Simulated scan of single mutants.
Amino acid sequence: MRQVRLAKDAMDRDWADPGLDLDAVAAHAGYSRFHFIRAFREAYGETPGQYLTHRRIERAEEMLRTANLSVTEICHLVGFSSLGTFSARFKAWTGLPPSEYRDKHVGRGAALIPGCYAMLWAGGFRTAPGSARRNSEEAG
Results as ranks from 00 to 15, higher is better:
residue 2 R to T: 04
residue 3 Q to Y: 01
residue 5 R to M: 01
residue 6 L to G: 07
residue 7 A to N: 06
residue 9 D to E: 12
residue 10 A to T: 06
residue 14 D to H: 14
residue 16 A to W: 00
residue 16 A to G: 00
residue 17 D to Q: 08
residue 18 P to E: 09
residue 18 P to V: 02
residue 18 P to K: 02
residue 19 G to V: 03
residue 19 G to H: 10
residue 20 L to M: 15
residue 21 D to C: 11
residue 22 L to N: 06
residue 23 D to E: 12
residue 23 D to F: 10
residue 24 A to D: 09
residue 25 V to Y: 12
residue 25 V to A: 13
residue 25 V to L: 12
residue 28 H to P: 02
residue 28 H to D: 07
residue 29 A to E: 02
residue 29 A to G: 15
residue 32 S to Y: 08
residue 33 R to L: 07
residue 34 F to Q: 09
residue 35 H to A: 13
residue 37 I to P: 02
residue 37 I to N: 12
residue 38 R to H: 09
residue 38 R to D: 15
residue 38 R to F: 02
residue 39 A to D: 14
residue 40 F to D: 03
residue 40 F to M: 12
residue 42 E to T: 05
residue 46 E to Y: 06
residue 47 T to M: 00
residue 47 T to H: 03
residue 48 P to W: 05
residue 48 P to C: 03
residue 50 Q to W: 04
residue 53 T to P: 04
residue 53 T to C: 13
residue 55 R to Y: 02
residue 56 R to S: 01
residue 59 R to Q: 13
residue 60 A to L: 07
residue 61 E to F: 00
residue 61 E to A: 07
residue 61 E to I: 01
residue 62 E to N: 10
residue 65 R to P: 02
residue 66 T to W: 06
residue 66 T to I: 01
residue 67 A to D: 10
residue 70 S to R: 14
residue 71 V to S: 09
residue 72 T to W: 11
residue 73 E to W: 08
residue 74 I to H: 03
residue 74 I to C: 04
residue 74 I to Y: 00
residue 74 I to R: 03
residue 75 C to L: 05
residue 75 C to P: 03
residue 75 C to K: 08
residue 76 H to I: 00
residue 77 L to I: 01
residue 78 V to Y: 09
residue 79 G to R: 06
residue 79 G to K: 08
residue 80 F to K: 02
residue 81 S to R: 11
residue 81 S to F: 03
residue 84 G to N: 11
residue 88 A to T: 03
residue 88 A to V: 02
residue 90 F to A: 15
residue 91 K to G: 01
residue 91 K to N: 11
residue 92 A to G: 09
residue 92 A to D: 14
residue 93 W to I: 10
residue 93 W to T: 14
residue 93 W to H: 14
residue 93 W to M: 10
residue 95 G to R: 07
residue 96 L to V: 02
residue 99 S to Q: 13
residue 101 Y to Q: 10
residue 102 R to V: 04
residue 102 R to Y: 09
residue 104 K to E: 08
residue 105 H to Y: 08
residue 108 R to H: 06
residue 108 R to Q: 11
residue 109 G to A: 01
residue 111 A to L: 12
residue 112 L to Y: 06
residue 113 I to D: 01
residue 114 P to K: 02
residue 117 Y to W: 15
residue 117 Y to V: 10
residue 118 A to S: 12
residue 120 L to V: 04
residue 125 F to L: 12
residue 125 F to S: 08
residue 126 R to N: 14
residue 129 P to E: 11
residue 131 S to W: 10
residue 133 R to E: 15
residue 135 N to I: 10
residue 138 E to F: 04
residue 139 A to C: 01
residue 139 A to D: 08
residue 139 A to M: 06
